[in-house]
Design a protein around this nucleic acid. Structure first.
Lengths: 242, 242
DNA sequence: ACAAAAGTGTTCTTGATACACCCATGG
DNA sequence: CCATGGGTGTATCAAGAACACTTTTGT
C-alpha cells in the first residue's frame, strides 16, 4: 500500500466519482447518441454525455442504471444492455476538481422515449457521425464506446439489444451495417445468424411488412445465447486495431 | 447531473480511489500471480492483489505503473503489457470506507525479479490454480483478469507479452496452452502464427536448445502487429461465455 | 407488369483439423 | 540408436464469399 499509516478518510484531496453514459440507438437507419447540452461553465453550451455522481450507497453500475432511467425514462431494464467501458482518471479532465469517471455504454432499441428530462438539461438524440467536439474527454469516451460495440458485434449476440422485442433479419442486418459502416451479403448473413443456435428464434406465424413493398419478413426474438461461435467477422479491413 | 447545485468538493463522503493489479507470468510451465500477504485487518494474513492509492496528481494508469515498478522492480516498461480491466465499486467491498478500485492486468515474461519489496508486505509468486480465497473481492478481479487474458489471446498478439524478447515458437505455444488449459497441435499452431503478418519475426541466424535434448529451435521476436486476423480460436468449448 | 424486399440454392475458395513424416541434438 | 523436441507436407472437411435465382407483396 502507498499509505502505510492506514486509511485516513481525509488524507487526500477528495476524489469525486461519477458515471458517464454513451447511450446508443438506431433511428432512421443511423446510429444516434443521447447527449445533453451543458448550461454552465466549463464547456457551457457544448454537448456532453449524460452522467452524474455515484451516490455514497450505490455502485457505479447502480448509478448508471439510475442515470439511464432519469435521462431516457426507461423503467424496465430487461432486454436493455448496459456495460461498463472503462474508467477515465486523468487529473486534468475536469478543471474544477479531481473527477474520476466510470464510463458505460448503453444500447437501446429504436424509440426509447425521444427524450425525457430527468433533471438539469434536456437530453437529445444526435447522429453519431455528426457530433461536434463534446465537453471534457467525452469525444474519446464516445469513440471508445463505438469501438467496443463494433468489436462485440463480432463475437456476441449484442446486436439484438438494438432491436425491439420482435424484429426481422433485415433489421438485425441493418444493425451490423450501420455500426460497422459496411454492407453485408444478405443470404450469407441470414445463414450465419440462423446457424448460430440461440442467437434468434422465430416467432411462429408472425410476419411484417418492412419497406411498404416487398415480401413480408418473418419475425424473430432474441435467443438465449450471448456468445457467437464462430464469430461473425466484419469484412476484412486488414490490420484493424483493438 | 445529480448535483444541480454544482460541484462542492466536500458535498459527499469522500471516495478513495485505488488501483489493484493482477500481475500474471508464466513460470515453470504454470500460470502464476503476484500476491502480497496482508499484515493488518481486515483480512489479515490473507493474500491480496498488490495495489494502492491513486495519488492526487496521477491517473489510474500512472498509479498502476508505479505500483508495478514498486512491487516487481521492473524499471523499463517497454514490451510490458499493462491494461485496464474494469472498475469495482460496490459500496461494501472494503469494510473501512468507500473504496473504488480500478483493476489492471499486467503480463510479464518469466523471471521479472522474483519479488522485490517496494514497501509494506513482501510480494510472492503463487500458482494461479492454487490461490485460496483472497482478501476483499480480489478473487473476482483475478478471475476476470484470467478471462480477459484468455479471450485476448484469441484475437490479439498478446501472448508475446508473456515471453522474453527472444523466444521459440514452442514457448509461444506453451503460453496459449497454459492460459487456456488445452493442448494445441504444433504444426497447425506454427503455421497459423507464421501466416499472420507482424505477429512474430525470425531472428536471422539464432537458435537455442530448449529441453536440453532435441533440435535447436529458431528464435523469434514480437512483430509490430497487435491484432490477429483471422483469430486463433481455442478448441471448440461450445458456448463459452464472455 | 414492374419494383422492392424476403428468402433459397450453388459454386468456389479459404482456412481449420488431423495426421504422417523428416531433422537435429543429447544421452 | 533411441528418445526428445523442432519443423514440413498433405489429405480432408467445414466455413466464408460471391452471386444467380425464386417468392411475395404494393403500385
Amino acid at each position: 500500500m502507498t499509505s502505510p499509516e492506514g486509511y485516513d478518510k481525509y488524507a487526500f484531496e477528495p476524489f469525486a466519482v461519477t458515471v458517464d453514459l454513451a447511450v446508443l440507438t438506431l433511428r432512421a437507419g443511423t446510429l444516434q447518441v443521447l447527449l445533453v447540452e451543458r448550461g454552465q461553465e466549463p464547456y457551457a453550451g457544448r454537448w456532453a454525455l449524460p452522467g452524474g455522481f455515484v451516490l455514497p450507497d450505490e455502485s457505479a453500475e447502480e448509478a448508471a442504471w439510475r442515470e439511464l432511467a432519469e435521462e431516457t425514462g426507461v423503467t424496465d431494464g430487461s432486454g436493455l444492455h448496459l456495460e461498463q467501458l472503462r474508467t477515465y482518471s486523468e487529473p486534468g479532465r475536469d478543471p474544477r476538481m479531481r473527477v474520476v469517471t466510470v464510463a458505460f455504454a448503453a444500447l437501446l432499441p429504436d424509440p426509447p422515449v425521444p427524450h425525457g428530462g430527468g433533471d438539469a438539461a434536456q437530453a437529445q438524440w444526435l447522429r453519431f457521425d455528426a457530433v461536434g467536439p463534446l465537453a471534457f474527454d467525452h469525444d474519446r469516451i464516445l469513440a471508445d464506446a463505438h469501438d467496443r460495440v463494433g468489436a462485440k458485434l463480432e463475437y456476441t449476440c449484442l446486436a439484438t439489444a438494438f432491436c425491439p422485442p420482435e424484429f426481422t433479419l433485415g433489421e438485425l442486418q441493418q444493425v451490423y451495417e450501420t455500426v460497422w459502416g459496411t454492407p453485408l451479403d444478405r443470404p450469407n448473413f441470414r445463414r450465419k445468424v440462423l446457424a448460430t443456435p440461440g442467437f434468434v428464434e422465430q416467432v411462429p406465424g408472425a410476419a411484417r411488412l418492412t419497406g411498404g413493398r416487398g415480401k413480408p419478413a418473418a419475425l424473430y426474438r432474441a435467443g438465449g445465447a450471448t456468445a457467437l461461435h464462430p464469430p461473425l467477422l466484419r469484412p476484412t479491413t486488414e490490420g484493424r486495431p483493438r
